[in-house]
Design a binder for these strands. Structure first.
Lengths: 267, 267
DNA sequence: TAAGATTTGTTCGTATGTATC
DNA sequence: GGATACATACGAACAAATCTT
């Protein structure tokens, strides 16, 4: 029914809109629909919450079936670009691409890339100190207090391996919180993404199964010192502290990754 | 036909599979289908090119209609996780999540974040020197020759603003190529992503409209020196050169961004 | 509370395009 | 070229959610 000229040919209009004017577009229709709507969003400079055409309007506009249009909308929905609601006044609206969703999509890519601890720390070693230095003297007292409350979550010694792991996940939250305070969305994203990968490693691969008192205790000292430097606005000192923090953390994780590998081999 | 009895209620089986056991899952069915198939890929440890169940099998397995299943598959397809082929022997296969696709998805996130030149260079300033240092003495002669051929693309002075812009895009390719040679997938991705953003800025926002001879000439000298240091395996020198390169490039782009802003205001 | 209106969500049957043999 | 197997697309009907009156 698509190409056949049974009745009128609404396809002509659709073809122009979707970019299938003459030379065939190898991509499937739903994907072309999704791209067309993305362009529409850019052209009309639509902002968060703005309304998009209804399903019925899109069906008429593109001259395609409901299923095809819906597949296209689903693509945009999973990318976080739109949200849909049912009922009167419902429809599709420009959504917010949250950092979490973007990180999840990016994790799909790295799933097949198997990163090593060394790879991640090659970036952390230079980015985290830069982040720390850039925040010195720029945080409100409320923000500093929040950092202190995060540190407080793991200031008590852990009594079990499981508690130890939970504490390490919490200590990664310290870095994520720091990243959120940065005005630099790119830096915040990359640092937050690394914290997320390390959290996954900790939870799924149980990199921290062999409890390591040393890492936790050193980490806490570094983080407390760091907060003080940030409060006093000492950028260079914050940078130095964070650099040292990264170096010891990397060394300890490297040693433990080796342990984990040996354990796999042993089984 | 997989889990369900003769013809009772196929929904029961589907509910378990898809994770709607008891408390309602607010997510729509297609999205749950997509997640279920992702889990299936992880559980069976499917690799690139491995075959997934056919549409008909999935319909029977989940007890859902064609349309719903197709919407789910489309989600995975746009994320690059699967590819589908028509015809006999066709079907859905585990795809490769290319770096380009991952960068495109990530660009959706930053579309609403408007990054400044300063934001991007805060990362470039520390990451590019680290990348350069890590590659010193580790590149083959073929790789070094490829870098030289990239530089050769813009060694001739440009005769028009348009040519100037093309040359700058090419010079960003130098950094992308360098990133690809890195064994660190995370570092390569972040550096490549920044190069892409800057390319977009150059092409769309025409940040380089005011031709700037200085940037190009200095850039070429730095890049030639850098290749030499890489060939000789001088890691620290490579780091220093790249750091200087970044500092001058940032200063020049900052000045031009200001110009561009003034131009927008003027109109 | 209840009924009706509006919009997305889901299903089914069918037809078409495409690649392989 | 024809047969086959598979994804792709269409359209009508019904279900569910949600707002208004």
């Amino acid at each position: 029914m698509a190409e056949s000229p049974t009745s009128g040919t609404p396809q002509d209009a659709a073809s122009q809109i979707v970019g299938d004017a003459c030379g065939r577009d190898r991509r499937s229709r739903p994907i072309r629909v999704a791209d067309a709507i993305k362009e529409l969003m850019v052209e009309r400079n639509l902002q968060r919450g703005d309304r998009l055409p209804s399903e019925a309007e899109l069906i008429a506009h593109f001259g395609m079936s409901k299923g095809t249009i819906r597949e296209g909308m689903r693509i945009l929905e999973t990318q976080g670009l739109i949200e849909t609601r049912t009922g009167p006044g419902g429809g599709s609206f420009v959504g917010e691409v949250t950092a979490d969703r973007a990180k999840a999509l990016l994790a799909n890519y790295f799933y097949f890339q198997d990163l090593s601890v060394a790879d991640i720390y090659q970036l952390r070693r230079v980015l985290e100190p830069e982040l720390a230095a850039s925040l010195a003297g720029r945080l409100t007292e409320a923000q500093l207090a929040r950092l202190e409350s995060v540190v407080a979550q793991y200031s008590e010694p852990a009594r079990s391996a499981e508690e130890e792991r939970d504490q390490h996940v919490a200590s990664l939250a310290f870095h994520r919180t720091l990243a959120e305070f940065s005005g630099n969305a790119l830096l915040a994203f990359v640092v937050g993404f690394m914290a997320r990968i390390l959290t996954d490693l900790t939870v799924y691969r149980r990199l921290y199964d062999p409890p390591n008192r040393e890492l936790r205790e050193k980490g806490i000292v570094y983080q407390i010192d760091l907060i003080e430097a940030l409060r006093k606005g000492e950028a260079e000192r914050a940078r130095v502290i964070m650099r040292a923090h990264m170096e010891t953390a990397e060394a300890l994780m490297q040693a433990q990754e080796a342990q984990v590998l040996r354990r796999f081999i042993a089984e």
